[in-house]
Simulated assay, not measured.
Amino acid sequence: MKPQDIIAGKTSLWIFGYGSLVWKPDFKYKRSKVGYIQGYKRRFWHGDNFHRGNDELPGRVVTLIEDDDETTWGVAFEVAGSQLEESLKYLNVRETVCGGYMTKMVDFFPEGEEQPSVQALVYIATSDNPLYLGPATSEEIGAQIAMSRGKTGHNLEYLFRLAEFMRRSCPHVEDHHLFSIEAAALTMVSYLLAAQ
């Protein structure tokens, strides 16, 4: 799905973020809401050789994997008017060009609201992408994150900010994958510091 097809005839659009967008959207928006989408799980299965890693040591960032029994929590941003085209142009570079993501429309459910879900645009890294790393143990992923740095910053910052968002904004949600990788990364950092 191309951005021009997404915005055709629309005056506003919701964009769902589940990774760095939850703390660093970097585009103008009308309002934002914490909530979730169904049928997907968030996994650190995508490589990043630009923002959070490099060609020699790619970082790990999250993508979505289809799973009927899972939900993924994040933030949806409503963009309207001129924000619509500007945000998609920006995200196309940030996500699609550098990261190899595809776009999809999903149902977003705002937290604690009785109103029905809204359609939201989401960026998903695909397994046929050259940067796609796939599954690994929490220890392996945590170690890789602890060692990786890119143009935007250290891979640890990405991990810790995402974990912080979940604890602060979704304290009732147990994200085992995320928190087990955070624990493994902290263990690796302690090991590296002790070895110095």
Rank of each mutant, 00 (worst) to 15 (best):
G39V: 09
S169T: 08
E157C: 09
A76Q: 00
S82Q: 10
K151W: 00
E56D: 14
V93F: 11
S180E: 08
A195K: 11
E157Q: 12
E139L: 12
M102C: 15
N49T: 15
R60H: 04
Y36T: 05
L88P: 05
T103Y: 05
V62C: 14
H172W: 08
N155D: 04
E114K: 01
Q83T: 10
Y123C: 07
F27G: 12
S190F: 15
H176S: 15
S117Q: 00
M166L: 14
T126E: 13
F109L: 08
V61S: 04
D67E: 14
G99S: 07
M1T: 15
A125Y: 05
V34C: 02
W23I: 05
V122I: 02
Y123D: 01
M188N: 15
V106Y: 00
T152L: 11
T96W: 13
E111G: 09
T71E: 05
V75I: 07
N49H: 15
H176K: 06
K151G: 09
V34S: 08
Y90N: 08
W45Q: 10
A163H: 04
T152W: 00
R60K: 09
K89I: 10
Q196E: 11
H176F: 00
R52A: 06
T187L: 13
A146M: 06
F165L: 11
M166C: 08
H46D: 08
V97H: 14
F50K: 13
D175A: 03
P58H: 04
I7Q: 05
L57E: 13
V34D: 01
K151V: 13
S148F: 03
G35R: 01
C98Q: 14
R42S: 07
G17R: 02
R168W: 13
Q4N: 12
Q196W: 10
G99W: 04
P110I: 09
F77M: 09
L21T: 07
C170W: 04
D55E: 15
V62R: 05
E182Q: 12
Y132G: 10
M147Y: 11
V61H: 01
L91E: 03
S127M: 12
H154F: 12
R52E: 11
R43A: 15
P171E: 14
R168K: 05
R31W: 07
L57Q: 10
D175H: 07
D26T: 07
L91P: 05
K89Q: 09
L156E: 09
G17K: 01
R31E: 03
L88I: 09
A80W: 03
G150V: 08
L133V: 15
A120K: 03
T63G: 11
D26L: 14
S32D: 04
V97A: 13
G35F: 05
D67R: 01
E164N: 12
